[in-house]
Design a protein around this nucleic acid. Sequence first.
DNA 1: CCGATACGCATTTTT
DNA 2: TGCGTATCGG
Length: 806
Amino acid sequence: MSYNFDSFNPAQRAAVEYCDGPSLVIAGAGSGKTRVLTHKIAYLMSECGLQPWEILALTFTNKAAREMKERIDGIVGGDGAKHLWMGTFHSIFLRILRAEHEAIGFSANFTIYDTADSKSLLKTITKEMGLDDKTYKQSDVLGRISNAKNRLVSADDYVNSPEYFKADSQSRKPAIGSIYKRYANRCRQADAMDFDDILLYTFYLFEKNEDIRRKYVERFRYVLVDEYQDTNYAQHRIVYQLTKERQRLCVVGDDAQSIYSFRGANIDNILTFNKLYEGAQTFKLEQNYRSTQMIVNAANSLICKNRGQIQKNVFSENDPGERIKVSEAYSDVEEGQIVIRQIEHLRRAENAEYSDFAILYRTNAQSRVFEEALRKSGMPYKIYGGLSFYQRKEIKDIIAYFRMIVNPNDEEAFKRIINYPARGIGNTTLQKIIDCANNNSTSLWNVICNPEVYSLGLSNATMARVNVFRELIEKYMSIAATENAEEVGRGIVVDSGIYADVHSSSDAEDLVRQENVDELVSGLSDFVQSRLEEDNNNVTITDYLSEVSLLSDLDSDKGGDEHKITLMTIHSAKGLEFPTVFVVGLEENLFPSQMACESMREMEEERRLFYVAITRAERHCFLSYAKSRYRYGKMEFGNPSRFLSDIAPEYLDRRSTVKSSFGRSADVELPWKRKTNVYNDEPEFMRSNNAYSRPAAPSRTVSMPNISGGVSSFTPKVQNTDAFTPVTGIRRVSKVTDANVTNASAKSPEASASIAVGKHIEHQRFGIGVVEKIEGTGDQMKATINFNNLGKKQLLLKFARFKVID
DNA sequence: CCGATACGCATTTTT
DNA sequence: TGCGTATCGG
């Protein structure tokens, strides 16, 4: 009956066991946080009598949610985890908003605008309002709006707020309020929400509909929040709405690893948790099981330079380990070589795998040099970051068609595809449609569906072209509810002319587009397939869209990427660990970033970022900086990062540091030492975003054409197809042609016939498992399979792709 | 309406 | 440097 806590330390165990009231788990880096979280959920189910659907567990990534579910199934056995309400804030609340759409005045199929859609709409709006789009840069304006929403400030609140108006006026952007107002109206008109709206509307849904709030309070008998240090105010308040009566919640996080305040995360949520939830128990997980003592100590000595943290004592009882090595390189290229030499050395000395290494940097642009160096030396690597699959133009175009079919009022989708592929509808025509829609407070789609009502004033020829488009969309709208997503998707890709368009030429660029389109279609096919296997319902394009709208960069760990060196930004490395980590580019104005030097808040966030970087390392951690590097095509000279001197010297090995042969010596007279620490922190209510650009720091750029010639010859090709070239975003290794896709979805009647309880089968996606139960007959025949890696799943044999192996 | 060329401007980004 | 957008000419 009692839970097995054998392998837990006292703090971990206490954190798992305490379920009666609010609790805050401060989980130092590498302290087994995920383990506590997953076991706590298992414990709630097995020891506290909670059903999985009575538990709400909020994470920050889809990947985290997926991995935790798998681990929970592993602990509990069976497939209970799939009934948990576990997912990102956005996906969980989107689900609730769709169910309660009437209460917020949206239709059930409202669209989610991604950042590009939002910016595009803002651009349209600034133009309409006759504002200068240099003063009202879309990214700035969107940042402001986003920030307001994250603080639960609606458009109406905003225009009525003297503070916001004053701040905007001071930065000479007094119209932001009216832009926000107009933006919000347009989103509503288009039946669309942006990412931040998901939280904003959830808050208002609960705030204004007590009955609905009660319903979910009743449902969620226990609430858990992971990465609490990265929640913003809106998320924090929503959690409070759901937990204030019962107070049964557990938040887990580490204030020292808060690195997303630029996106609105508010570290105060975790720092003041005990005030909001009085009597909350605090548990500190302080033993680090990941890293050597040296690494932990070095990280501690760094992070204690920040103020205002929760007191804790992270320690390691692992090997003492070796000091952190610091290397100085003359150039960015040499820095790459240093890293490579070190990898070669450790491969020989410790028999290390390529996958044991990670190269972490502050900005994506830094990946170039390492890519080049690794390619030259023939080492396999993979790069994370860059354009995700769903951000590619050809993919966005297709998705825009899907969006139109599901919600024809979607203005951004409309703008994107009205003339793609080209059908002779230009900007003038589009502008007329938009103006007309604005004047009549309706959607673009309504305007083209009722041209006589809204007197569009288009020529007959143009109107005819518009009608072709309208009929195309209408045709698919009418079949979207009954046909499955794959049929609809294939149909639209061909019918719209996209297929012909990407096949119109065969240069390298177009080949990539073709592959992407094929990949989307095969992804669609996979999606339909896996949904069909698990239940019998029709899988529509609406289902598909609601699945992909919150999937930004599809976690590319699909396989085939083992045995490779990992290159990524420090931000994306959060939560990961590697035996050996290289933190590169430790230079002033790069890390810490130039942008962070004005405010202490941001400087401390940079320091936490460095802390995160170091604590990714299990055994070896290497730091490096280059005295010169190419930036924006120019050679720049830099100084070593102040962070290097933030680490206590007894944990560093700076032997390899060569004294500078030109310029200033690294350890003497550093520019920031002359500065007193006066930071211009913004007023509290507009903090933590990038909405206002700061005055640029004086440039120290020096042009050095002679040197630049030599170095620029390393410049990699843009489009590369050799074997080591990583593909950013997701990749499916298999090339799936039309024919293959159809074959792949074929049923396997022979397999279904020979299946029996006790037999082993190999499923195409789920791997190997044992048949535990068979029920139903004919098309309804289902089997319960216990998969080795995934636990139990019910499959509908009619659709399942597997073979019997014994 | 589309292509070519010029300009300007650059963090981090789980959603 | 190199990408994304703005503008002009066909």
